[in-house]
Design a protein around this nucleic acid. Structure first.
Lengths: 169, 169
DNA sequence: GCAAGTGGTCTTAACATAAAACTAGATTAA
DNA sequence: TTAATCTAGTTTTATGTTAAGACCACTTGC
């Protein structure tokens, strides 16, 4: 909604997500929230974001149920922004982004950070795509099944080949 | 790089990823590429993106090694854009976004699409965070370990509590 | 009570985007 | 082989978004 065009109604969950958190700052704010950042000034100083932008983003994320306002945990009269259950669900998105970044965006000698199991200090496992029965799946073994409210279910295989329809979900 | 500010050097993989694919269109182009879309006009018609934007995005994604140009698969003199190995690595990011969107952005009665196992037609399992030994992990059981090129490793726990430093990785 | 800190809003200039017009080479149809 | 059309862009222009900083009100600490 911060963008000119919206693909909310395209029926694709990915497009709809980008409509909500697809701008530059939202995911960084959420990332910081996962690290315990709660106060306006903390976000602002940590990200170097303009205050006007930050105010707009916090308002949007709150309206969309990803953050919620809470009284300050230190007893002062100020407010804090904390992740809702819905917002906490974005952790896997952050992890997926992080793991791809760690794997593809650093030179071998370059220092970076990793997400580790607090208990052991060992980096967490890479996310894996699996079938309901636990069988590992490759992206070529999946397809998007589009459920329309009327008419037959149309399907579309991943992995090119002969393409017959264009829009996917 | 399509944005004004860049957090490439912040040391955080998440910020670095957003620097690469953090704009509105890149992920939608990549999503379509996973569905077999290859030609300029296919992307353009499918997304409804302005041609100038599309040309710029395709150029950027190619320069960054996420897409590569290939001769047209139908034998014509035109070119096609296909995902590289690096680009295909983004599948889990798309899946993470999709699953969160499916879970949180649709009304119960609203039709949507799902990613299914082609073999069985059953939706794929939700992604899970696990330790190296396979133990399921909650986000509160993880922390970001920052490796700096000099000085001691600093750590930062997830889940608020007493925060002592601000910037995370 | 006063200075500093917190959490914003408003203004402005710089920049990105959307839409459409324009171009040039490739393909197809006559 | 010539013309019409398709493909894949580039350029232009109007408009929307962002960054940066000035400004303001309320809170807190001293």
């Amino acid at each position: 909604m911060v963008k000119r065009v919206s693909l909310w109604d395209a029926g694709c969950p990915v497009a709809r997500v980008l409509d909500v958190i697809g701008d530059w700052w939202s995911l960084l704010i959420i990332r910081d929230a996962f690290d315990g950042v709660r106060r306006f000034s903390e976000f602002q100083a940590g990200l170097g974001i303009a205050k006007g932008m930050l105010a707009a983003r916090l308002r949007d994320l709150t309206e969309r149920g990803i953050l919620e306002m809470a009284p300050a945990s230190d007893g002062s009269a100020y407010r804090e922004y904390v992740l809702t259950e819905k917002g906490r669900g974005l952790f896997l998105v952050i992890v997926a982004l992080r793991q791809w970044g760690e794997d593809h965006l650093y030179r071998p000698d370059e220092p970076k950070s990793s997400l580790v199991d607090t208990e052991t200090g060992i980096p967490v496992a890479h996310l894996e795509l699996r079938a309901q029965d636990g069988r590992p799946l490759d992206w070529t073994e999946t397809q998007v099944k589009k459920t329309t409210d009327q008419g037959p279910t149309r399907q579309r295989k991943h992995a090119a080949g002969t393409r017959t329809d264009r829009r996917r979900g």
